Amino acid sequence: MTTVEDPADPSHGTEAAFVTGAAGGIGVSVAQILAERGAPVALADVDAGAVRSLAAELRAAGHVAVGYQLDVRDSEAVRDTVDKAEHELGALGTLVNVAGVLQVGRTTELSEQQWRRTFAVNVDGVFHASRAVVERMMPRRSGCIVTVASNAAGVPRHGMAAYAASKAAAAQFTRCLGLEVAEHGIRCNVVCPGSTETDMLRSMWTDEDGLRATLDGDPAAYRVGIPLRKLATPRDIAEAVAFLASDAAGHITMQDLYVDGGAALRA
């Protein structure tokens, strides 16, 4: 674990937020919106340079932010980073699990290494961060955890078995955790994005027709399109996360919020 930058001014009265995967598309927007709404933010990402840049941008805008290089697969490093964040920023009131990787390919084509890496980041990482943070929240009898999963957690996707299975596991873990810690006043919820304007989505497009195919759907892969006829922006997902982390969602726990323009056709 490496501290990338110290906060500009750690003196504050608002509980801090810890965001994993903070240097990626959705993670950046989550960090920005939580900072805008007054929370000191601990930014954790495996990309030290990107997380350093984001922390500096937030501090330049007048927010309290500190960046940490962190691989969420390393449970000891996660605990150390959470300890460091509470020392520098104060009590953590919010954890947002955003860190994730995408592995596409038919099941028969996936290597064991690809499968294990997907679960190590998307599931083990959520477990490591949630456990480390919730242990600190429980004595305070307050806090909230939001896990960013995917609409693929609830809808089968062709060529996405590893990703979909890992996101389903992360979502169910978060709901189970919510049941365990409800008596301590801690809420745990899941945000399930659909196709969102990020590098992860663009990596799935093989040609210039990628956007059209995403909006229209792909009958050959048994995939419907997006009824709203547009991609989500990272800010769309961050707004949903911020809502679930806010007092306005004070009686919401163990729920999944799909933010996918209707693509999952959820009942």
Results as ranks from 00 to 15, higher is better:
Thr2Ser: 10
Thr2His: 08
Glu5Pro: 07
Pro10Met: 07
Ser11Phe: 06
Ala16Glu: 03
Val19Asn: 00
Gly21Met: 05
Gly24Cys: 07
Gly24Asp: 08
Gly25Leu: 00
Gly25Thr: 04
Ile26Leu: 06
Val30Ile: 14
Val30Met: 05
Leu34Lys: 06
Ala39His: 15
Ala42Ser: 10
Ala44Tyr: 09
Asp45His: 15
Asp47Trp: 12
Ala50Tyr: 01
Arg52Asp: 14
Ser53His: 03
Ser53Thr: 13
Glu57Leu: 06
Leu58Gly: 05
Arg59Trp: 00
Ala61Asp: 12
His63Trp: 06
Asp71Ser: 08
Ala77Pro: 13
Val78Asp: 07
Arg79Lys: 09
Val82Ala: 03
Ala85Gly: 00
His87Val: 07
His87Tyr: 02
Thr94Cys: 10
Thr94Pro: 04
Thr94Val: 15
Leu95Val: 11
Val104Pro: 00
Leu110Arg: 10
Ser111Thr: 15
Glu112Trp: 10
Gln113Trp: 01
Gln114Asp: 15
Gln114Phe: 04
Trp115Glu: 00
Arg116Met: 14
Arg117Gly: 01
Thr118Arg: 08
Thr118Asp: 07
Ala120Ile: 08
Val123Asn: 01
His128Glu: 00
Glu135Thr: 11
Arg136Leu: 11
Met137Pro: 04
Pro139His: 13
Cys144Leu: 06
Gly154Asn: 12
Val155Pro: 01
Ala161Thr: 15
Ala162Thr: 05
Ala162Asp: 02
Tyr163His: 10
Ala170Glu: 00
Gly178Trp: 05
Val190Glu: 09
Thr196Gln: 06
Glu197Asp: 15
Leu201Asn: 11
Ser203Lys: 06
Met204Gly: 13
Met204Val: 07
Trp205Ile: 08
Glu208Leu: 08
Glu208Met: 12
Asp209Ser: 13
Gly210Leu: 07
Arg212Gly: 14
Thr214Met: 10
Leu215Gly: 02
Asp216Gln: 10
Gly217Asp: 05
Gly217Cys: 05
Gly217Trp: 03
Gly225Gln: 02
Pro227Arg: 09
Leu228Asp: 05
Arg235Tyr: 06
Ile237Ser: 00
Val241Tyr: 09
Phe243Ala: 04
Phe243Ser: 03
Asp247Phe: 04
Asp247Arg: 14
Ala249Asp: 08
Ile252Arg: 00
Gln255Cys: 08
Val259Cys: 02
Asp260Ile: 09
Ala263Thr: 07
